[in-house]
Design a protein around this nucleic acid. Structure first.
Lengths: 163, 163
DNA sequence: GATAATAGGTCAGTATTATTGACTCATCGG
DNA sequence: CCGATGAGTCAATAATACTGACCTATTATC
């Protein structure tokens, strides 16, 4: 009886609300700073993932953001023009343009990160480590298996790209 | 030393990833159906919250979605024209247009809900009840306090708006 | 009862983020 | 050599959002 509400429906509906509001308020945390700089959330997402996986290719970034080449072109062009992102030819495959943050881009990303950290860190401290573990397990279970695999295959260098 | 990376930074960065990917794949679940119907995610969000809080006012919906009147006008106009949403004058305040789903709108919302349920319910079952509790506690802690209060003040009638 | 404030709607113009489709160029791999 | 891939680009369009101004109906206040 797939169309009949069962005892799990209310948990799923509650989760829909949680996902919407937490994501809304989370993304909002960096908006003020972005607006001051004349950048949008798309720029922030690109900065975040390039900082998280320095040396990634354009194709990888397209796959993460799930947008088209044309959409990324504008955002990436802005960031390169502003001196936040540098592109270097790939060593093994010289067609590739490996993406990384410039020192200036890393500093900007850090400032944006601090805004979201100011929201997330107290939340995790308040909820406690067990809650965070449950949060992580649940969020991972929500993802596509392919997304999960990609995350697991990613080395965690993002918190050291400044040094 | 607010600009110095500490031991919590990696957890915050991991959480940024979790929020982005889980939200991306979660919202994606309903996209195929929405495209068939010629509707967008904005329409889905409106349907969801109207179904969740039948009788809500336009101002309340604007506050939840955090968009402007003009942005909502298009979406709400579409839904009313298509017969998915009905507006009735408020009893106490006749300036208000109380929003509710028509039977047809409830049926559409249910179909969209089923897509997301197909993704969320197995995820919660796999993660387990303790993980879900941690997920809920953490997501609530991420929100603005005002958002949390609003959620707590909302009667949970959304899973019964069909009957 | 006049008046201010609110709920909602609407018009005109613009910005951001995204799309599709076609095309070029350089490079890689068999 | 030649097909496939990585990346960039041009042109046109769509979805979602914005600002600012203005209007009506109704409620609340002085």
């Amino acid at each position: 009886m797939p169309d009949m509400p069962d005892s799990h429906d209310s948990a799923v509906r509650r989760a829909q609300d949680l996902l919407f509001f937490a994501y809304r308020d989370f993304t909002n945390a960096a908006d003020v700073l972005l607006e001051e700089l004349g950048l949008g959330r798309a720029h922030h997402r690109a900065l975040h993932f390039i900082g998280r996986r320095p040396g990634m290719t354009v194709t990888e970034l397209l796959g993460i953001l799930r947008i088209t080449k044309q959409s990324l072109a504008r955002v990436l062009g802005d960031l390169v023009t502003l001196g936040h992102v540098a592109q270097t030819p790939g060593g093994a495959d010289r067609r590739q343009r490996l993406l990384r943050l410039t020192p200036q881009g890393a500093e900007l990303e850090q400032r944006l990160f601090d805004r979201q950290k100011a929201r997330l860190a107290p939340a995790f401290a308040q909820a406690g480590p067990d809650a965070f573990a449950g949060f992580e397990a649940t969020m991972r279970a929500i993802m596509d298996p392919a997304t999960r695999d990609m995350l697991d295959a990613t080395p965690e260098t993002g918190d050291r790209h400044v040094g």
